[in-house]
Design a protein around this nucleic acid. Structure first.
Lengths: 371, 371
DNA sequence: GTTAGCACTCGAAAAGAATGAGTGCTAATT
DNA sequence: AATTAGCACTCATTCTTTTCGAGTGCTAAC
């Protein structure tokens, strides 16, 4: 049996209708809904075929049909892509979109001077706009080069070690010392560290370099070891994960997700944010960096009744993060894809287009002055 | 009508039983449950009195009785305090508790080198131990003095401004500059800022001091202004709120909270963490810093069906935060109070008792190297 | 003051009945 | 050969009815 034009139309009608109502849709509904002018009986026959092909399901005998994961997949891959082509053709829509981007940007950037806060607001905004749950991951500093390192005496028994990585990621570490150091020693150490380590990635800081540094450390061997540890910690990827979530309680708006055990599982996944890591960093850039996972396709088992749409954004070169929108399988894919694209474009362009005159906000990913 | 000894005993029995079962308790249950040796009929009469006095409620005629908020309050105030006195008397129990503290401390401190992570783990541990939802607020840096400030040239067009506040709270800010500065200028500015601002609180940095600094800034007036802004931002209390939550999905374990609209409200409150602020910073130090809010007593309306137990802890002098446990009104108050006390003691003693030899972790509240 | 006894209440659970949306199949129609 | 009208059948949902029993309040006796 083949999936001919007519079956496709019927399938599309079923899915459209189901997205709107959330109820299983019957043959009579479709016979009225479409412009095919077919009787319900014919539709019924076609539906039986579609079911056999695996695109739709019957929750039980004598109920209407519901799209299967395979059905959604077809819908998303084919029918939505048509829409996308349309957009590319229509210049008007593009400028509309740009306008939207500008508006969003203004909203977001206004009074916000930290990327982290901005991302957090982005998550919140997406959640409010879409009525789904959202996540935004903060770009990882993994693999970045060390740009700057400096020790400063803060206390008689404490040394502050500040490191700046590529992308202006700032890291701090306070080190205990046994005896107070004079300025000259600190200066000497700063020169040592900067000349030895600057411009290197974590991988490039090898034993040879470390040994050489230790050799030059003189009396400050202990401190040097601590600094090297601090650098390693700052540049390593461990616990290097920050994800903002928002709108998790939106799932209660969808009955198919709001029974307490399902809801609990899903919300728990959002609370234990590290469970969301499998959603980020999928480097597949097909379709302009947008991924759509339907039902069991999601890498997270607790979300088997959900669909997930993600996009990868890039703040500055190499600083990549992920935006995700999570809703029921019958989510409004078109709207979600549109929204997430807009958000992606916005974040991508944030620093490229940023007017250089505005020095009100800084671009670091550091958030140490939130506390 | 008076609340005599016997009524009190019956009330206590009702509450105890209700805490265990979560079901309305009837007269027959109590007549067997207590050592009073009274018939169910007598209990019934007493119960009618207790209801008239407002300590218990009947969900409907022909149901058993359920404690009212007033009943819980009495229970918590009186019956639990007796228990507390017992503990003070029993030396054994104290040493037991100390042992527990040590165990917890080891668990928490192990492999943890940041206070923030530690507090986050603390929230998680409390949630796992109690099966309730928990929150831990991070101490605010508000009102702290500036201990150290330093500018460093990072880029040709960027200056890094590092500030350290009392309590070793580190804050960073990257400033844009128009033209590159030579080392000498930076050194001069550093001396200026340190000598002008160190040891001051935000309030003490008044217009006079600012004017004087501006006067000495020379050609670097613009940069000086930016630094002053950065200092103000770093030391101000705005957006100075960080709360970790955990175990929010535990509320699904209690049917009286898990219908979707209630659960949604509660979980939303935990997601929008600023809604929890009203729970922190209540300075009332009655009862060793432990507060108990029952039902409508909680300052947060969405939690009217919950009880909240909070404690204030103090890391270093003046660095105060709040721990909170949120559960159903029929929570196990004794256990929760015990647990939260232990946690409080633990946090309080964390830095006082800390062995000076261990330099593995730093004490800053800064978390900039999480990302 | 306490208790046994009894009629009564009322929610929860089980059982039954009505409804109706939707199906599959067959036979007639185009 | 494809389409459609017609009809018997299915089954979740909803509403009503019944049953059940835990628990009460009250009265009269101890």
């Amino acid at each position: 049996m083949e999936l001919d034009e007519r079956k496709l139309k019927i399938l599309q009608a079923i899915i459209k209708n189901y997205l709107e109502t959330g109820e299983p849709v019957g043959s009579r509904t479709i016979s009225k809904y479409t412009d095919l002018n077919l009787s319900s009986a014919t539709i019924r026959n076609e539906m039986a075929d579609l079911e056999e092909l695996g695109y739709i399901l019957q929750p039980h005998t004598s109920a209407g049909r519901v799209p299967s994961d395979k059905g959604y997949r077809l819908y998303v891959d084919n029918m939505m892509r048509e829409k996308e082509n349309l957009i590319i053709k229509k210049e008007i829509e593009i400028s509309d979109k740009e306008k939207e981007v500008e508006e969003l940007k203004e909203f977001l950037v206004e009074k916000v001077d930290k990327v982290e806060t901005l991302l957090q607001n982005m998550a919140k905004m997406l959640a409010t706009n879409t009525n789904y749950a959202t996540m935004v991951s903060v770009p990882k500093s993994q693999g970045k080069r060390l740009k700057f390192i400096q020790l400063s005496a803060v206390d008689s028994d404490k040394i502050l070690c500040v490191m700046v990585l590529e992308g202006n990621i700032i890291k701090n570490k306070l080190l205990d010392i046994d005896e107070e150091l004079d300025n000259e020693t600190i200066l000497k150490l700063n020169i040592l560290f900067n000349s030895s380590l600057n411009g290197l990635t974590l991988e490039e800081i090898n034993l040879g370099i470390i040994a050489k540094m230790k050799g030059q450390a003189g009396e400050q061997l202990e401190l040097t070891k601590k600094v090297i540890d601090a650098v390693a910690e700052a540049m390593s990827t461990e616990e290097d994960l920050k994800i903002y979530t928002s709108g998790t309680t939106n799932i209660f708006k969808y009955p198919e997700l709001s029974d307490s055990s399902k809801a609990s599982d899903i919300i728990n996944t959002f609370e234990e944010k590290q469970l969301l890591t499998s959603l980020i960093n999928k480097e597949d850039d097909e379709q302009g960096g947008i991924q759509i996972y339907i039902g069991n396709e999601t890498p997270i088992h607790t979300m088997k009744d959900c669909s997930v749409v993600t996009a990868t954004y890039e703040l500055e070169d190499g600083l990549k993060g992920t935006i995700g929108i999570i809703g029921p399988k019958r989510m409004d894919y078109e709207k979600v894809v549109e929204t997430i694209k807009t958000a992606k474009v916005q974040l991508d362009s944030l620093y490229k287009k940023r007017p250089s005159s505005s020095d009100d906000y800084d671009m670091t990913l550091d958030d140490s002055n939130e506390e």
